[in-house]
Design a protein around this nucleic acid. Structure first.
Length: 646
RNA sequence: GCCGGGGUAGCCUAGCUGGUUGGGGCGACGGACUCAUAAUCCGUAGGUCGCGGGUUCAAAUCCCGCCCCCGGCACCA
């Protein structure tokens, strides 16, 4: 038995193509396994806790449970449309999930892996509460830049443990927070270093995730697993605290299994099933470090594989919701009435599972029109049409050569799927379709039919066997379209085993075939491209007053030096008229210090000072960002340092 | 700088536990066919396998050095 899970989507936003890079291949994998006669359970659900949900709900004027429900419904809808069929799709807000989570945490406690520690935490006196995670804004203790409570998101990027942040402010009311002592609870992650090393050396899955994890193992810290929040799973030893969302989220894999089947103990306690986690690379830490340690500590079964998908790019750019490099599944893809199977094929076939996948509308159109339609769909349709028009009923006599080809393709597919090589598997399908076209073309049944009907029928029989094989092979990837086609040859593909491709019926009755796939027109793609590209440059409108707040002037670079041990940073001394400023600029990669001295540049003089690598920076110089390389802005004529820029 | 992943024809990519003439796909060009959603089939052109050394009878594949790209972190005020 196998249990396949997908990383839980976070219930504070809609699904985009980046999400689908995990869910679609997982669904394809599960469907193939079932066709290969494996018993499989496929589990997922909404991840509903954590601070961002509370903050977003407040912003939208909703209760957290309402916000969560809204996105939960969205997930169910989109997964259904895309034919991603989980056996159970739960919610971490449910009672059963809270119970299972508390049971596991109690085991961690009983087994001695949880300890309390008094730490100093930010507390907002006007809101009368402790400020966990992203409720708090302050200064990073490591690099002294403004940061969020849980990580230094603008500066050094470090994960901050609760209470570490300096000068905390309440994000909700903006007031200065005070530090108060508070007892929190820690999981002894450091006790699992040896275990993790051993575990990571034997766990299966994709190399990308495991390699990262092997590096992380050498630098573990105990993990604060409680938060001062009301929204979440109550911590058993202190009900005024909830568990950190990353404690309870993966436990959903267990609690959801429990809802589905009484066999859950065999899977999660007795270790009688293979547990396979499909995740995005961004949550590899949680699945390769935190999660196995927790399971081990609580005496549960360990996952046998972590399969991480690579990142998604949009039109060649790094995926970014805020910058608009994103494709929304419901509002864009589905709204355009595009066949969901096209997206499934694209995601699974574009490149290998662990490499970065580029989603480009032009490539999408080409793959759909050339591969799915011209090669694959056209083969199905030309055979079915020819068979229907000329025979209606075909006596099946299939050549050994054809069966051999089908058998080889089956082997290739099965081997590839076992290794999560979805591209290899789907390429094999396309190749078989191509073989079919070639066979049919070279056999010229449209000529044969004029003088040797029997011979023509034999060609059609061979081709029909290929059609049947293609329908079965590609069903896991394109289930909706294949169900439709299967009907015209009287096949119920949902109940087929992959071995059925080797079975030859006595005769096949053809009903009138329908065109299997609609072509994608240029105008359609242009529209989709336009709405995407229009978004790229969008920034909120600002008033002239807001603009006037900027103190922009011409500065003259008096001195420039490289900052030690830094690759990108230069320390500059700039004359801005009434004073000489020191500032740090990330331009060292394509500017030599000696070339900069004497140069006029544009400076923002009233930017809040910050320290970067221990060097104080008071201001910023402006440059065009050309693929990450800085091209400095300079005045067109010689002007005095300090000249205002409007 | 450290860590990870890469650099193969105009573009995407397989091969990378060394061994027959480095495979595909898209695009380009020429031809054929008409059953088929102007789909399909056959053929042609196009490669210093990032650069330089080394090991070997034999290297895209192994070793050493270097360059470049991507991602993460240190550092883009």
């Amino acid at each position: 038995m196998k249990l396949v899970t997908c990383g839980l989507p976070y219930a504070n936003g809609k699904l985009h193509i980046g999400h689908m890079r995990t869910y679609i291949p997982a669904d394809v994998y599960v469907r193939f396994l079932r066709m290969m006669n494996e018993k499989v359970i496929f589990i997922c659900g909404s991840d509903c806790h954590g601070t961002p949900i509370v903050v977003n709900a407040e912003r939208e004027g909703l209760k957290p449970e309402e916000l969560v429900e809204k996105y939960h419904e969205h997930f169910l809808r989109v997964f259904k449309e895309l034919a991603v069929e989980f056996d159970f799709f739960g919610k971490t807000t449910e009672k059963y999930h809270h119970e299972r989570t508390r049971e596991i945490v109690n085991r961690l406690i009983e087994n001695g892996y949880v300890y309390s520690k008094e730490i100093e935490l930010a507390y907002c006196e006007s809101c009368k509460r402790f400020l966990p995670d992203r409720y708090v804004e302050g200064i990073c203790p490591y690099c002294k830049t403004p940061a969020r409570g849980d990580e230094c998101d603008q500066g050094c990027g470090r994960h901050l443990e609760p209470g570490e942040i300096l000068e905390p402010r309440c994000k909700i009311c903006g007031n200065r927070a005070v530090f108060k002592k508070r007892t929190h609870y820690f999981f002894k992650l450091t006790a699992f270093q040896e275990f993790l090393k051993e575990y990571l050396s034997r766990v299966s899955g994709t190399e990308n995730a495991i390699n990262y994890a092997k590096e992380w193992v050498n630098n573990l810290r105990d993990w604060c697993i409680t938060r001062d929040l009301e929204w979440g799973v109550k911590f058993p030893l202190d009900e005024s605290l909830v568990l950190y969302v990353w404690v309870d989220a993966p436990i959903g894999y267990i609690s959801f299994t429990e809802q589905l089947t009484n066999d859950w103990k065999k899977i999660w306690i007795d270790g009688e099933a293979e547990i396979i986690h499909f995740i995005g690379l961004d949550i590899a830490y949680h699945h390769c470090i935190f999660w196995p340690s927790m399971l081990k500590a609580a005496g549960y079964a360990l996952p046998s594989a972590v399969v991480a998908s690579g990142m998604v790019k949009v039109e060649g750019k790094t995926f970014s919701k805020s910058r608009g490099y994103v494709v929304w599944v419901e509002d864009e893809y589905l709204k355009a009435s595009l066949n969901p199977d096209y997206l499934r094929y694209y995601i699974v076939n574009y490149t290998s599972h662990e490499k970065d996948l580029n989603f480009s509308w032009d490539t999408f159109k080409e793959k759909v029109n050339n591969e799915i339609i011209a090669t694959f769909g056209n083969f199905l349709f030309r055979i079915l049409s020819f068979a229907w028009k000329n025979f209606g009923k075909i006596k099946m006599e299939v050549d050994g050569e054809i069966m051999e080809k089908i058998s080889m393709t089956r082997e290739r597919i099965v081997e590839a799927i076992k290794k999560w090589e979805f591209k290899v598997a789907t390429d094999a399908i396309m190749e078989l379709a191509s073989f079919g076209n070639s066979y049919f073309q070279n056999s010229k049944p449209w000529d044969l039919i004029k003088y040797d009907k029997d011979k023509a029928m034999k060609v059609v029989a061979n081709a029909l066997q290929l059609v049947k094989a293609l329908v079965i092979f590609s069903y896991p990837v394109m289930p909706k379209s294949m169900e439709k086609i299967a009907k015209s040859i009287g096949l119920d593909v949902r109940t087929c085993s992959i071995d059925d491709v080797m079975k030859i019926d006595d005769e096949v009755v053809i009903s009138k075939p329908e065109i299997p796939f609609e072509k994608i027109e240029d105008e359609e793609i242009e529209k989709l491209k336009k709405s995407l590209f229009d978004r790229f440059a969008e920034k909120p409108e600002i008033s002239i007053e807001e603009f006037r707040k900027l103190d922009i002037r011409i500065g003259k670079i008096l001195d420039a030096k490289k900052i030690e041990k830094s690759k990108k940073l230069l320390k500059l001394l700039v004359d801005i008229g009434d004073e000489k400023r020191q500032l740090v600029a990330g331009i060292a990669e394509n500017h030599r210090p000696e070339d900069l001295i004497g140069k006029l540049v544009v400076v923002i003089a009233n930017l809040k000072p910050a320290k970067i690598m221990g060097v104080e920076s008071k201001g910023m110089i402006l440059a065009a960002d050309v693929g990450g390389k800085a091209v400095l802005l300079v005045p067109e004529k010689e002007v005095a340092a300090g000249t205002k820029v409007k």
